[in-house]
Amino acid sequence: MKAAGHVSWGGGGQIEAAQRIAARAAEAGLPLQLHLPNLPPLAEEGEARRLARKPREENPEYEWRGDPYLQVMDPAVVCDLLRWLREQCGFVQLYDLSAVDPAADAPELWVVYGLLNLAEKVRLELRLGLNKEHLSVPSVVAVHQAADWHEREAAEMFGIVFEGHPDPRALLLPEDWDGFPLRKDYEFPDQYQGISCT
């Protein structure tokens, strides 16, 4: 029995799994870079340090808490990478695929792939930076069918083009919707088809 209310940081062995996969990827020559969180849980943080913690804009040091992730350095290899993770490392399920716009003035969007290994019971997060000037990434539907609707959603919400998607229609929004709502620079419309939105 674990300690009362144990929070498994990194989702139970997630940090070890990310380290292991990063080492294997380096051996196989795949462009993955490991990022580990460097802030401890709040309970382990000293009181003085907690008080000294400042919002990001006042805190130039990159300190963060949460899950580890593997940064994909080259968008072109993402299909091969997922296939390799599936066949060699047992990450058989793509449980989530989404994108994040960190800030309106940020040069890049992130595409986040969440992978699950059912046998070893671990998750893995892959993150891909996409320059906002050129939002294009290969579709991974050929590797994981689960990506089908997730990619359609990310495409209409962020304006990312998933090259080679078999059915790139809009999913949740009308086909004629203007703009990409989940982008930070999105401007809310005044009207849609003559219907006031304000």
Partner: peptide, 18 residues
Amino acid sequence: PAPGSAYCGIENPRGELG
């Protein structure tokens, strides 16, 4: 919350809510 990203999945009646 401190800067960072976290995924949390739980077992909903319909499946994994993340």
